[in-house]
Design a protein around this nucleic acid. Structure first.
Ligand SMILES: [Zn+2]
Ligand SMILES: [Zn+2]
Ligand SMILES: [Zn+2]
Ligand SMILES: [Zn+2]
Lengths: 145, 145
DNA sequence: CCACAAATGAGACTGAGTCTCGGAGTTATT
DNA sequence: AATAACTCCGAGACTCAGTCTCATTTGTGG
């Protein structure tokens, strides 16, 4: 996970540039996400922080996540109904998508240039400005097949 | 909307083949979805049915939607966090995806062969079985741009 | 028509996410 | 270091889509 510190620094830089003060809750959520390569739910974040002896208010967690999403630092992944997930987003635009296994619920990350290409082309074809795209596949993962 | 009756008939056929009895609530939900070309939320369905003088229990609506999704007759569209949407699904596999306008919230439907192709190829490349794919774009629609 | 299973609906319940507001933490200025 | 002006934080009440239960109704095969 050699890139985690880079992301962390980038986050600090963006937030500082935005004129925001620092704070404990925000710091804790950022550190946790920096450590985690794939999507966490808000509840998992709350539990993880409590488990490592850093209990953090739910309102703060959602506030921080919203802030990070607004600044393009974190992506909100709608992996299914009922619970949003969050994962760090690289400034380079580098990202991946997910397959959710219907059997075991496991998340499998993947990326695919052809898919990105097709989505990129759509913007023009539809005459709209596409800011963001969510792609979630459902099926059976390697292990469950 | 020349194809709406066809979908309706297909639904009836599939459910009859599955040995299910008919019932008022199910009939009402199917008729409403047959009339509607794009994604409705469960709450919108509940309200629409009440508005046309056919109030229907919430539990029944969710039951019917689950049943239709299980039989591949309706697609659950996760257009955002907090509220699932449902739209009819054609037996031919013909379908579309959506762009959600960040400004006005409007849904824009589109389809794209290159996108479908890319997703189809993924199945093999990843070594998984892909049953279903959700693609949601976010941005500004033609009207809001 | 009858018996029985399937379908329905009122309303209690769950749980992710939001909101509020008083108090704690941060920073610029002196 | 003290002050002041701000931002950030968190406990817990609240909202609301979605689930569950169970008594009642309805559809259907015989
Ligand atoms: Zn991921
Ligand atoms: Zn992508
Ligand atoms: Zn649609
Ligand atoms: Zn598709």
């Amino acid at each position: 996970m050699a890139d985690a510190p880079v992301w962390s620094d980038h986050v600090q830089a963006v937030l500082a540039r935005a004129g925001l003060k620092r704070g404990g809750a925000r710091q804790r959520v950022i550190e946790l996400l920096a450590r985690e390569p794939c999507a966490l739910s808000a509840v998992e974040i709350e539990d993880a922080l409590r488990a490592e002896g850093k209990p953090t208010g739910r309102a703060s967690i959602y506030r921080v996540l919203d802030l990070l999403v607004d600044h393009g630092l974190v992506e909100r992944v709608a992996v299914g109904p009922g619970q949003a997930r969050f994962e760090r987003m690289h400034p380079s635009g580098e990202h991946h998508h997910h397959l959710v296994c219907d059997q075991c619920g496991r998340l499998v990350a993947f990326d695919d240039p052809a898919l990105e290409q097709a989505i990129g082309d759509l913007s023009e074809r539809l005459g709209v400005r596409v800011e963001h795209h969510d792609v979630v596949l459902r099926g059976a993962c390697e292990r469950c097949e």
